[in-house]
Amino acid sequence: MTLHVWSLYVVAVFLISATPGPNMLHVMSQSIHFGPRRALATMCGLMSAVLLCLVASALGLGALFKAAPRLFDLLRYAGVAYLIYLGIRAWRARISTDDEGPGSPRSGWTLFGTGLLTGLSNPKLIVFAAALFPQFIDPQRAFAPQLAILVGSFVVIESFWYAVYAFGGMRLAAWLRPVARQRLFNRLTGALFVGFGGALLGSRA
């Protein structure tokens, strides 16, 4: 992998990660409801999903999906169902009053698991890992160093945007104290998750 190829990869990942999607929306909403510190467990779950998808792609999962499209469809439908579930839950989320603090605490493992499943059902990540990521690996060069550089670069960039969205959520939490704004945010978040589910439903291996 040349420096030019790596530079193109970094630019592509930076732009893809910056674009609002299920991962970033989930980080922001968890930061609003539980605070940025508690949202770290969510970020770890999302990042684990990123690592799993990228490594699986590099090891040939994309080719497997092309050879067995029914397997891809099975995973796709499961992801669609989970995103729609998140959308319904966000739409119906409890509204807190001004004198209440952050939402009721959840265990770190619960937040991690929710983040992991959200990441694994992310249409952007699935399409990127299956179709785009393998193209940056030069088969004529050593595999392991390339994989380490590409995955490491992705983790650094993705972590940066997690922090941006988490602290953005923290600042947004104060604005969302009025009940009407909370209800609007919950409705918008729910609709976006359902929309992401529709995007995944329309994706192809």
Rank of each mutant, 00 (worst) to 15 (best):
A131L: 14
G190M: 07
R171A: 15
Q140F: 06
S159F: 10
A144E: 02
Y77N: 07
A41K: 01
T114W: 02
G35W: 01
T2I: 08
D73T: 13
G79Y: 02
V50L: 07
A81E: 02
A174R: 14
L201V: 04
K124H: 11
S104C: 07
L117Q: 13
D73Q: 13
F128D: 05
R183A: 12
A163G: 12
G79P: 01
L3V: 08
R70Q: 12
F154C: 12
S48A: 09
A56G: 04
L75N: 08
I149S: 06
I88R: 09
F160M: 14
R37E: 00
A163S: 13
A180C: 12
P105L: 11
F196S: 01
D98Y: 10
M47S: 02
R37F: 00
A56H: 04
G101N: 09
G119C: 11
I157D: 04
P178F: 12
L46K: 00
L3Q: 03
S107V: 08
G113P: 02
T19I: 10
Q135W: 11
L86S: 06
T114A: 14
Y77P: 08
L51R: 00
D99I: 14
T189K: 07
R171T: 10
G198M: 08
R177S: 12
F65C: 09
F133K: 06
I32Y: 00
A90I: 10
A180G: 11
L25E: 00
T114M: 15
L8C: 10
Q140I: 06
V164C: 10
A199S: 05
F167V: 15
A191E: 11
S17M: 07
I137C: 05
V194N: 05
G101Y: 09
M28N: 02
L116P: 06
R141D: 05
G108I: 14
A93I: 13
A18I: 10
A68V: 15
A131W: 07
Q182L: 14
V80T: 09
M1W: 02
A148I: 15
Y9T: 07
G79N: 05
L46P: 01
P134S: 05
P36D: 01
L8D: 12
V194D: 06
R171H: 14
G101Q: 11
L125F: 05
G79L: 01
R181V: 09
L200Y: 03
R183T: 14
A12R: 04
H4V: 10
L3E: 07
N186I: 11
Q182P: 13
V50D: 03
G168C: 10
Y85W: 15
W161Q: 15
S107D: 04
Y77M: 14
S96H: 14
A67V: 12
I126C: 11
M28G: 01
Y85I: 13
S7E: 04
A18K: 04
D138H: 01
A142K: 08
A148N: 04
A142F: 11
A166C: 06
V164Y: 09
A90V: 12
W91G: 09
W6N: 01
R38L: 03
N122C: 08
V50A: 07
M24E: 04
L51M: 02
